[in-house]
Structure formats: structure tokens, C-alpha cells
């Protein structure tokens, strides 16, 4: 700060560069603490973007990235004329839409109900239990889901049988039409508790006077939930929702990879798995990259679209 004021009196353009370097020396520790990460982020996050060029080439790993045969949009044309691609796109959109709906309704309801619990100790115990599955890997969860749904002694089949709802066990894991539902429910089981954290935080930020005033006005519990609690979390909800829409198409593949088996592959294969199969297992790097680019471009369009609509409605922007 002191150096800046003394510097101001000397000629402008000379002092500007001089001042820049002087500050740089003064902040040498800050540079030492951040520049290594700049190099790291360039290599591990920005260099792969450069790899997008592969989608427009017949990429051969032994040559450099610019020393390749350029083929224009060939891989994209091939991608869009592959029937399998549309099947995979259907699976991706079906599971992501189901996941989006469930992950934005169930946690809100759960948070509302948690918020209504009067016993603080009971509330905390339930929260601790509900957050637990979030920390368990998808590998473990897929094992648990397979176990619970198995036809010999799986808890779900046993329960349904003992309630006389079915006469013989349902082969959940072997029927393709169950797969989307299984992924959605497994995801809800794992993440619902975790997803309530933010909503509960938003609820605790609501002014208690609002509740007091409405009690005086004679509002019941449900009216308070509907007119105070829910509007109180609207902003949080919308921000998270818009951000999630961007992930509609890039939902990852972990759950699908771990829960699927050859019998249900026509319902389980999602875009990332399709890219993994072609791009790495079959070594068609260029084709796999083209799938990845499609994924990223659609995601970006979706985020901007969602943000545009949100802006139109509320006059505010999320990103």
C-alpha cells in the first residue's frame, strides 16, 4: 500500500511496469504458493481440451496430436447414424430425468418432515443414519442392491412374498424394464439424506418471526409449511435445480456400470459407457472423443437454456 502512494508521483508509464515487478517481488510467496497449481491445472484440465482435436482425426497414438490424418466430421456423422447411439441416448435421458425428479422431490419432503421433528436428539440420530450411505462407495451399494433384490432370500422379495403381494420372487436384476427404476431407487437410497443438508440449512435461515406471526394469525402446521417453509427454500432449490439440468446428459456411468449385467445392457448402457466401450476397450479414440464432445456441448446448451428460462421468470441469473 505504501509503495503505491509514493509511486504515484513518478512518471506514469515507467512506474507502472516498475510497480508491477516491485509488487511481484513483494508477493513472491503468494506466487510460489499458487504458480505450481497453475501449471498443474493447465496440464490436467486444459490440455485434455486440446485433445478434442482427436475427434476430427483418425487418431493414432504413436504420432503427435497435429501429425494426424484429418477427417472432418466423419466420426460425428458415423455417431449420428449409429442406431445404438439413439438407444444409449434414450437410456441416458430416461435415467437422468427420473434421477432429477426424484433427487429434487424426495429430499425436499424429507427435509420438511425432519424440520417438523420436535425431539432434537431423535432428529440428529435420524440425520446421522440418513447421511451414512452417501459415504459408502457405489461398488458396495451395487453389492447391497444386488443382495437385497436377489431371488433367493433377497429382503425385498421376501417382504413382498410374506405380504402375499407376489407368489414367486421377481427377477429384478435380470429384467431390463426394472433397470431404470432400480438405478433411481438405489440413488435415492444413497443420496437422499445427503441432499437434505442444504435444504435444512436453508430452512434454518428462515426468520422465526414469520412462524410466530402466522401462529398469531391462526395458521396451522401445514399452512406454515406451505406458505413459509417451502417459499423459504425456493431460491436454494432453483439454483441447485438449474445446475443439475446441466448434468442431465452427463450423469456418469458408475451406477450403471456396477449394477448392469449382459441381460439388461439394452436398458443400462449410457453415453459414457458407450464412449468407454468404443473409445478405450476397442481403441477407437477418435470416435470415443466425438461422443465426449457431443456430451459436453449438449451439457453447456442445457445449462444456458435453463439459466435463460430462470432469468426470464425471476429476472435473476444463476451463472
Amino acid at each position: 500500500m505504501k509503495s503505491q502512494t509514493t509511486e504515484l508521483s513518478s512518471p506514469a508509464n515507467v512506474s507502472k511496469t516498475k510497480r508491477f515487478f516491485r509488487t511481484m517481488v513483494q508477493q513472491k510467496y503468494l506466487y510460489l504458493m499458487s504458480l505450481p497449481f497453475v501449471i498443474w491445472v493447465v496440464i490436467f484440465s486444459y490440455v485434455p481440451i486440446w485433445g478434442w482435436l482427436m475427434a476430427f482425426q483418425n487418431y493414432k497414438p504413436r504420432n503427435g496430436i497435429l501429425d494426424q490424418e484429418w477427417v472432418g466430421f466423419k466420426h460425428f456423422i458415423e455417431l449420428f447414424s449409429d442406431e445404438r447411439f439413439y438407444l444409449v441416448l434414450r437410456n441416458t435421458l430416461a435415467m437422468s430425468t427420473m434421477g432429477l425428479i426424484v433427487s429434487f422431490t424426495v429430499p425436499v419432503i424429507f427435509a420438511l418432515l425432519l424440520n417438523e421433528l420436535r425431539q432434537q436428539f431423535f432428529k440428529r440420530t435420524i440425520q446421522t443414519i440418513a447421511y451414512l450411505p452417501h459415504f459408502v462407495s457405489w461398488v458396495v451399494v451395487s453389492g447391497i442392491v444386488t443382495k437385497m433384490l436377489s431371488t433367493d432370500g433377497g429382503a425385498v422379495n421376501e417382504l413382498l412374498m410374506s405380504l402375499n403381494l407376489i407368489d414367486q420372487p421377481i427377477q429384478f436384476m435380470a429384467k431390463g424394464e426394472w433397470f431404470w427404476g432400480i438405478v433411481t431407487v438405489a440413488d435415492a437410497w444413497k443420496e437422499t439424506g445427503w441432499n437434505t443438508i442444504i435444504f435444512l440449512a436453508a430452512m434454518s435461515g428462515i426468520d422465526p418471526e414469520l412462524y410466530e406471526a402466522s401462529t398469531v394469525d391462526g395458521a396451522g402446521r401445514f399452512r406454515k409449511m406451505w406458505h413459509i417453509t417451502l417459499p423459504g427454500i425456493r431460491t436454494t432449490f432453483m439454483v441447485l435445480f438449474i445446475l443439475s439440468i446441466g448434468h442431465l446428459i452427463s450423469i456418469g456411468f458408475e451406477k450403471q456400470f456396477l449394477l448392469m449385467n449382459p441381460l439388461v445392457i439394452d436398458y443400462a448402457e449410457v453415453l459414457d459407457l458407450y464412449a468407454l466401450n468404443y473409445g478405450i476397450n476397442l481403441s477407437r479414440y477418435s470416435y470415443g472423443t466425438a461422443i465426449g464432445i457431443f456430451n459436453s456441448v449438449v451439457s453447456i446448451i442445457l445449462v444456458f437454456l435453463a439459466n435463460f428460462i430462470y432469468k426470464k421468470v425471476t429476472k435473476e441469473s444463476v451463472i
Partner: peptide, 15 residues
């Protein structure tokens, strides 16, 4: 910026 995009699985694998 890197929170909003990723090079994707295959370019990262090649890297």
C-alpha cells in the same frame, strides 16, 4: 472454469 467443463474420458486417458 474447470468446474464447468472437462476434456472427457478419452482425452484424459490419452494424456
Amino acid at each position: 472454469m474447470t468446474m464447468y467443463f472437462s476434456g472427457g474420458m478419452i482425452p484424459i486417458y490419452m494424456l
